[in-house]
């Protein structure tokens, strides 16, 4: 299954399905919880037409601040209302000292942070009564790190029992920004934990820095890394992210088709949207 991130900018295209034909759509629950009026009607049409996966923005699993149980309560009701099986979040933090920052800040790769996050993942999984899926994020500098990113991610996966949303573009971005081998990084992950994949474009802003913008087409080296990854894992749902600089719909469908062609070559089994 190849899905596409749902954006209001091209809501009509999703509903008509004339050019864009994803197998499912992904939404950020924070953008839809408690929404009414025109957009609620649009969203209901989307939910009638497509299976929905949720990818959160504000849980802030790595935050020093307490978990927000009002948010979790609203989230749980939203997932139930729309019969959503997959809920994923970022392995980062977006709130600190009682202030939301609305972006993904890098967690210090440290043992105590692993323990902290593992405990919180277990709480969230218990509360939501579903497996939780954590995404490896792109980061532009390590902060107070005492271990490498790979050790950090694997420790959390192993100790929490959560699954991995493997963002292949983020692996590529991080390997470029921090000068490591992307394929070796993929090889080192607990690949049996991969439950979902994200693919996206990025923007290189200097000789040594790429920003994960979701605003460009996927480049060939990222497709190649995806192909490499697909050869090492069981079939899982794939999501194409495109948040800015939206191109003609036919270009997005072209990217979906390319991803589908790779998975058709690599995977014979069907991959359902179940966490």
């Amino acid at each position: 299954m190849i899905g596409l991130g749902y954006r209001r900018d091209f809501a009509e295209e999703f509903i008509s399905g004339s050019i864009i034909k994803p197998d499912f759509v992904e939404v950020a629950p924070e953008n839809w919880i408690g929404i009414g009026g025109y957009w609620k009607k649009q969203f209901n049409q989307i939910a009638d037409k497509y299976k929905i996966a949720c990818h959160g923005l504000s849980l802030s699993i790595g935050s020093p601040d307490p978990l927000d149980f009002i948010f979790l309560k609203n989230l749980k009701a939203f997932l139930k209302e729309y019969n959503i099986d997959i809920y994923s979040e970022h392995l980062s933090y977006a709130k600190c000292d009682n202030a939301h920052l609305y972006d993904l800040l890098p967690i210090p790769f440290r043992e105590d942070a692993v323990t902290h996050i593992v405990e919180r993942i277990k709480i969230v999984q218990d509360y939501l009564e579903r497996p939780f899926i954590m995404e490896n994020v792109s980061y532009y500098t390590p902060v107070a790190a005492e271990m490498d990113e790979l050790t950090f991610i694997n420790a959390i996966l192993e100790q929490s029992g959560c699954k991995l949303l493997l963002d292949v573009n983020n692996v590529y971005v991080n390997s470029f920004n921090h000068n490591y081998n992307a394929k070796s990084f993929i090889d080192g992950l607990l690949l049996d934990k991969v439950a979902y994949i994200h693919m996206a474009g990025h923007l290189q802003i200097s000789d040594d820095l790429i920003i994960d913008t979701h605003g460009e087409a996927i480049i060939d080296p990222v497709f190649d890394l995806f192909d490499y990854t697909a050869g090492k894992i069981q079939p899982v749902p794939i999501l194409l992210e495109r948040d800015f600089n939206i191109p003609e719909m036919i270009e997005l469908q072209g990217e979906i088709n390319k991803l589908k062609a790779i998975t058709n070559l690599r995977w014979s089994k069907k991959h359902e949207l179940i966490a």
Binding site: G62, S63, P64, Y93, C96, D97, A99, L101, D103, L105, P106, I107, P108, R110, D112, A113, T115, H116, E119, Y140, T141, P142, V143, A144, A145, N177, H178
Partner: peptide
């Protein structure tokens, strides 16, 4: 479960994002 060091690093990064006052964090690129 966070140590004071880890919490401080996270807090300083978040504060820097908001006020732009330079911080000296361990291991920054």
């Amino acid at each position: 479960n966070l140590s004071l060091d880890t919490y401080t690093a996270q807090s300083q990064l978040a504060k820097y994002c908001r006020d732009g006052i330079a911080v000296d964090l361990l291991g920054l690129t």
